[in-house]
């Protein structure tokens, strides 16, 4: 982990960042390349304040998942530095990835156990987390006995069980139906407000990003760069179909489309 003193003057950010010293996640000039392959992330600088909800938005090939892996500490940048002071961040995927040989409560308890929580405390803590994601009474069920939305809520509870102040989410609701997704947006907003955790949420759904985030960071594709940032001042809890959310979504979608169109010209020139 890079020390904080090597970081200065990160990306200009419209969000209220409490100075770099207090940031929850800092990426400074991060470049990532796998072997001799193409550059996936190119000089990405980003600072996320404690308790901030940031959505990373981009088309395919913008290196969103690579970026989350770097922040989660599962991979190292080729150049630049990633700093996440404190606990190792927790990470949630598009698939719930619950262990099928454990019940929902045991899945959460395993995360607590690996964090070093004592046996007696694990049960009550797992129950509290299940209650937080509104699954009280479903702790004894196995993953295959739960609906898709319930599974993703258990996965959220497991991520929260790591007790890290930073929660990374990699398109966690992309595989859910629209009604369940809307509901989980409400739940996530509620939990974020209750816990005050820092959330970095990756998505390619513009309206989802506007519905959830305090700030949306638009990434360009191939290589991934920070293209633009938007501060979102709409009051929470928002509704995804509200005129405010729609208006901003239209603007961001236009910018995203412009980014994607660049690749059509590049490709035409190349052939």
């Amino acid at each position: 982990m890079a020390s904080m003193k090597s970081l200065r003057g990160t990306a200009p950010s419209p969000a209220p960042v409490a100075g770099d010293g207090g940031a929850a996640v800092v990426l400074d000039g991060v470049t990532k390349r796998f072997g001799r392959g193409p550059i996936v992330l190119d000089d990405v600088s980003l600072s996320v304040a404690p308790g901030e909800f940031v959505c990373l938005l981009g088309a395919s090939g913008c290196g969103k998942s690579t970026l989350l892996n770097l922040v989660a500490g599962l991979d190292r940048p080729t150049r630049g530095a990633v700093a996440v002071p404190g606990h190792r961040p927790s990470l949630m995927f598009q698939e719930p990835a619950l262990f099928p040989w454990l019940t929902s409560a045991q899945n959460i308890e395993l995360a607590l156990r690996l964090r070093g929580v004592g046996k007696a405390e694990r049960r009550t803590e797992a129950e509290r987390l299940l209650e937080l994601v509104r699954l009280e009474g479903s702790g004894g069920k196995r993953p295959h006995e739960l609906s898709g939305g319930m599974r993703q809520r258990v996965a959220l509870a497991r991520a929260l069980a790591q007790d890290s102040r930073v929660l990374l989410m990699d398109e966690p609701f992309a595989a859910l139906d629209a009604i369940t997704r809307d509901l989980l947006h409400d739940e996530l907003t509620r939990i974020w407000q209750e816990l005050g955790s820092t959330i970095v949420f990756v998505t390619h759904n513009v309206r989802e990003a506007v519905r959830l985030g305090q700030r949306v960071v638009l990434l360009s594709s191939r290589p991934g760069r920070v293209a633009k940032e938007y501060a979102i001042d709409i009051k929470q809890p928002r509704r995804i179909e509200s005129p405010d959310v729609s208006a901003l979504s239209v603007r961001i979608t236009d910018d995203l489309s412009a980014e994607i169109r660049k690749h059509a010209t590049l490709r035409a020139r190349a052939s």
């Binding site: 599962l74 990470l91 995927f93 995360a111 690996l114």
Partner: peptide
């Protein structure tokens, strides 16, 4: 990967 994220 989940195991790694959880610290195992």
């Amino acid at each position: 990967r989940v195991g790694h994220v959880l610290g195992a």
